[in-house]
Design a protein around this nucleic acid. Structure first.
Lengths: 201, 201
DNA sequence: AGAGTATTTGACCAATCGGTCAGAAACTGC
DNA sequence: GCAGTTTCTGACCGATTGGTCAAATACTCT
């Protein structure tokens, strides 16, 4: 009996419509881009009408805000904690670990704004996210660093998000082991990339 | 006299329309995605009408093929030379260098298909490109490698393309030194990532 | 000059875009 | 049962999408 509703548990009580729509919108935004994703297709995929989408979310931008906003806020909090903790090598190591966990939990959100942060400038939630990334880059490595040092951050960020979302295709999807191994691998690789960086002033 | 036409050189003879359109289309595809880029906007940006775009290129897909196809072909040739050369450590080091140069010369092309290769499956030029990436990943690191080893390739590819295109925004654009420094930095970082990889059988 | 080709364009098309609105359901508490 | 609210939907809107086509312009060659 796969369809009983009340919250007895286990057997797929249909989730709230707004949540379904938000999740599917997120997948579409990550897959075909914000501009390329249409409200109609999001509605179809979720089994609702386009009007229903616009009932739950005032417009397309509000849907984007709902899809990635909470993750952006969590990133902001994460970053603030890191800054408050002061710059030490242990603090940075801990932050890398926390950031990878954040990335694993919000891959689609991060991938979406990391790869479209430029073209979507002007949308509030995107501007918020971009500001965080700038802060993060200046926190992990200050201005007068060498070219190769400055690029370590970009390669780590882009490499991690890419290999978690887009790279899953030709990386034989899940042939690369359980989630725990992926986590450990990312922590190691990002750690390797950032290790040679001098602590900022 | 900035507008004389014959090939005397130096003073901006207006390039062929098809070339202008191809270049601007490439920039749009990289910036807002294939789905998000409209023929109208490409035409406007180039100073032509939409009809002119469709005169030079049969349809939107043909424009994508023209925009990134040649780069894909060059990648295929590059990859074939690497395979023919046999798997040795020097061969791989040389390949990394060649690949970075290829990347620097075709950043927008690579960024476009690397980040949209999944959603644009079915378009011939994209399928060609995806096949090359799969081959490349299996060439640089064989199947029975560990999780972290397999992810080294993905992080290197995604990280390099990202930091060359999208990352330029908060990396203070060109504050990271002349092109030669960027090249050296990329060779070093990708080299670091791939160095621990065992040669495939 | 005039014929012939290459290029450019506007008018037009069906389909889809994001978005509005009024009303049909469905669910609530009584 | 019935009022009140929440949710959902179809009809509709102007704008834009990729694409067709015939006519206008520009260029080349004799």
């Amino acid at each position: 009996m796969p369809t009983h509703d009340a919250e007895s548990g286990s057997v797929s009580p249909r989730p709230k419509a707004s949540d379904e729509l938000r999740q599917i919108a997120l997948e579409q935004f990550a897959a075909v881009g914000f501009a390329g994703a249409s409200l109609q297709q999001i509605a179809d995929e979720a089994g609702y009408s386009k009007s229903s989408v616009l009932y739950h979310y005032a417009n397309k931008e509000a849907l984007l805000e709902a899809a990635i906003g909470p993750a952006i806020d969590r990133l902001g909090a994460l970053l603030q904690r890191y800054i408050d903790r002061g710059s030490s090598l242990e603090a940075r190591t801990l932050f890398v670990e926390e950031f990878i966990d954040f990335l694993l939990e919000h891959r689609l959100e991060v991938y979406t704004f990391v790869n479209q942060g430029h073209s979507l400038r002007g949308i509030p939630v995107i501007d918020r996210a971009n500001a965080f990334i700038v802060t993060l880059s200046h926190t992990v490595c200050d201005d007068n660093a060498s070219t190769v040092e400055k690029m370590r951050f970009g390669v780590a960020l882009g490499g991690a998000t890419y290999s978690l979302v887009a790279g899953m295709d030709f990386l034989d999807a899940d042939s690369l082991g359980p989630a725990e191994e992926v986590r450990a691998a990312l922590i190691q690789l990002v750690g390797e990339l950032l290790a040679p960086l001098a602590l900022p002033a």
